[in-house]
Amino acid sequence: MTPFELVEPASLGEALALLDPDDPAVRPIGGGTALMLMMKAGFFEPRRLVSLRGLGPGITGINEGADGALDIGAMVRLGQLERSPVIRRAAPVIAETLVTHSNVRVRNVATIGGNLAHGDPHMDLPPVLIALGAEVVAASPSGERRIAVENLVESYLETALGGDELITSLHIPSQRNRRAAYIKVTARSADDWPALGVAVSLAVENRAIRAPRIAIGAATETAMRLPKAEAALTGGASWRDTGREAAAEAPVIGDHHGSAAYKRVLVGVTVERALRRALAGVEIAG
């Protein structure tokens, strides 16, 4: 790796002041697992990395509100999320997803904020968090704003975050009365980067599906919702027809995990399976 400056500020204000909106070679660093890969490959040569390790408990905690909403600090390690009793109760799909997310060692180090800020489309958590309606809280010198996870990543490795802005926490609205599932399809081992990830989240009221959210990742340029498939499902379409709608709608692209034609077939089948898993044991009218 090429040499760089590493600074370890002790407060958020200090950290923001050390970022440089005009220099893309100045970036925040959480656990560093993804950045290290890019730096070792020579793809990213930082001038300065701003470590968020010293920012204190505000950025390392998992808190559940009285209504069941979750606030997760950006520096929470993926392994911490996976093991958290709060997460396992309030949003179990996150813990289930993490089991095949890279490996135990990477999850011991990688952070949720870094995972999202990285903007890599081949990640398991973005479609899951989109399906759960999650938002990131981002801070910059001009203040704080919330960005829905579905709007965070704009294109390949490009996010909506400004050059002097960083993710401080993740907010997940209450999932009470909602059910969710994530299905990951890999071309090699189970813990490989996904060829496709499909997440669904929905409520069931009076034996009818309400407010479904269907999100995919790894097969499109960014993780995204599939609104036509969601509308079809709300309108009473079968799980299979909802999958067909999803496959027709998704702007699928190919990569070395699979061709676009192959992934499009996967989308249809996997959406159907994800719905079946989320609704296991639930009776639906019609």
Binding site: L6, T33, M36, L37, K40, S102, V104, R105, N108, V109
Partner: peptide, 27 residues
């Protein structure tokens, strides 16, 4: 592998395994 995939560089940091090839020494 140098990419955190193979586990040959595993060390225990505060009791948990990390890939020391993907871990900045200052951390």
């Amino acid at each position: 592998c140098g990419q955190g995939l193979c586990g040959c560089c595993t060390v225990l940091l505060d009791g948990r395994g990390v890939s020391s090839c993907l871990y900045l020494a200052v951390f």
